[in-house]
Amino acid sequence: MIYLITGGVRSGKSRYAQNLALSLSANPVYVATAHIWDDDFAERVQRHKDDRGAAWINYEEERKVSSLPLEGQTVVIDCVTLWLTNLFEDSSHDITPAMETIQAEIDAIHHKAGTYIIVSNEIGMGIHGETVVARKFADMQGWTNQYIARLADTVILMVAGIPVIIKDEAGKR
């Protein structure tokens, strides 16, 4: 089962994903994909850590999320945008290898037993990127979200803290 939770910055994506995971499991797994770039970002990450209690099993993995022992568990992967940033940087801003890597990772997760709640951002809904690299990244993020959404059983767009169901194949079962 895959849930894709997407939306803008501070739309409530992570909180919604965490609450969903806790409603499905007493001991969910949290996978943080962030690379700590600066002090401000470190504070944001710490706030996220503080929001989670002792019930969580926590992993930090910037690239090879599918290599973690996630099989059969309820897992929050937060977030695709930061994960994709790491892969994009690794590829020297070449879209093709970054897309191939993220798709292979998503495919591997899709084939594992368990419930995966994947958090992403809708960065293409904001201003147009000023640089070639920013525009390439926005395109890649959009394509990645589309890829995950095709595989997902449920897709939820968060708007001002309110979940808007975009796709709900899970509810049809």
Rank of each mutant, 00 (worst) to 15 (best):
F41K: 02
A42M: 12
A42Y: 10
R44Q: 11
V45D: 10
V45K: 04
V45N: 08
V45I: 15
Q46F: 07
Q46L: 15
H48W: 06
D51I: 09
R52S: 09
R52C: 09
G53E: 08
G53H: 07
A54G: 02
A54E: 14
W56K: 07
W56Q: 09
I57V: 15
E60N: 13
E60F: 13
E60S: 13
E61Y: 11
E62H: 13
E62P: 10
R63N: 09
K64L: 13
S66W: 10
S67V: 08
P69A: 06
E71W: 02
E71P: 00
E71C: 01
E71Q: 14
T74V: 15
V75R: 01
V76Q: 03
I77V: 15
L82R: 10
E89R: 11
S91I: 06
H93M: 13
H93Y: 15
I95E: 14
A98L: 03
A98S: 14
M99N: 05
M99C: 03
E100Y: 02
I102T: 03
A104I: 01
A104P: 03
E105M: 05
I106R: 03
A108Y: 02
I109F: 02
I109T: 05
H110D: 13
H110S: 14
H110F: 15
H111A: 15
H111V: 02
H111P: 00
H111D: 14
A113G: 11
T115K: 07
Y116T: 01
I117M: 04
I118N: 03
I118M: 05
V119W: 01
S120R: 03
S120V: 00
E122Y: 07
E122P: 04
E122K: 05
E122L: 08
G124R: 02
M125S: 14
M125Y: 12
G126F: 01
T131V: 00
V132M: 04
V133R: 06
R135F: 05
R135D: 01
A138I: 10
D139G: 00
D139P: 00
M140E: 03
M140P: 00
Q141G: 07
W143K: 14
N145K: 00
Y147L: 08
I148P: 00
R150Q: 13
R150G: 10
R150E: 14
L151Y: 11
A152M: 09
D153A: 13
V155D: 04
V155N: 03
I156Q: 10
I156F: 10
